[in-house]
Amino acid sequence: MLSFELRYLGELVRTFTAEADPGSADHLKRLLTAAVRRDGRGDAEILDYELDVRDSAGELITTFAKMAA
């Protein structure tokens, strides 16, 4: 299990845990998209969000953000 911090324009929105491969952009993109929708925002606003990904010890693994197409 990994811990995630969802941020909107740099501000913490929520934290959650999920099973995911931190090296898979596809896994992280799906998690980010679902988290944005749960926050009541649309896909058009996804570029304003990012996910901090932490291991079970709380160490930051990476920060994931969707790139503009």
Rank of each mutant, 00 (worst) to 15 (best):
A68T: 14
F64W: 12
L2T: 02
Y8L: 11
A65E: 12
D26G: 06
V36W: 00
E45I: 07
G10W: 07
G40N: 10
L31N: 00
I61C: 03
T33K: 11
T17S: 15
R30W: 05
F16C: 02
V36F: 04
G23L: 09
S56K: 09
S24M: 06
G40L: 07
L28F: 01
D52M: 05
S3L: 05
D48H: 15
L12M: 10
D21C: 03
R30M: 07
L32P: 00
E11R: 14
R37E: 15
L12F: 12
L32Q: 04
T63S: 11
R30Y: 05
G58D: 09
I61K: 01
S3I: 02
D52Q: 12
D43T: 11
A44E: 15
L28D: 00
A57V: 11
G42L: 10
Y49P: 01
R7L: 15
M67A: 15
V53W: 00
L28K: 00
R37I: 10
M67I: 13
S3M: 04
T33G: 07
D43S: 13
K29A: 10
R37G: 09
A20Q: 03
R7F: 09
V36K: 00
L9H: 08
R7C: 06
G58F: 04
A44C: 06
D48S: 13
F16E: 04
E11I: 10
A68P: 06
T33E: 13
E45A: 15
E59G: 12
G10N: 10
A20G: 04
M1V: 07
F16L: 06
G42N: 10
F64E: 01
G23M: 11
D21R: 05
A34V: 08
D55Q: 08
F4P: 01
L47N: 12
E11F: 09
L51V: 06
R14E: 13
A68K: 15
A69H: 14
L6A: 04
A18S: 13
K66E: 12
L60Q: 06
T15W: 06
F4V: 01
T15Q: 11
S24Y: 02
V53H: 00
G42M: 11
A18V: 05
L51W: 01
E45H: 15
L31P: 00
D26F: 09
T15Y: 08
F4H: 00
I46F: 07
V53I: 12
R37M: 13
E11K: 14
A69Q: 14
R54K: 15
T63N: 05
R7H: 12
E5A: 10
E11C: 04
A65G: 09
D21G: 05
R38Q: 10
R54D: 05
G58R: 09
G42Q: 07
L9V: 09
E50M: 07
A34R: 11
R54Q: 13
G40E: 07
E50H: 09
V13M: 11
A44S: 14
L32W: 02
R7S: 09
D39H: 12
D39K: 03
Y49E: 02
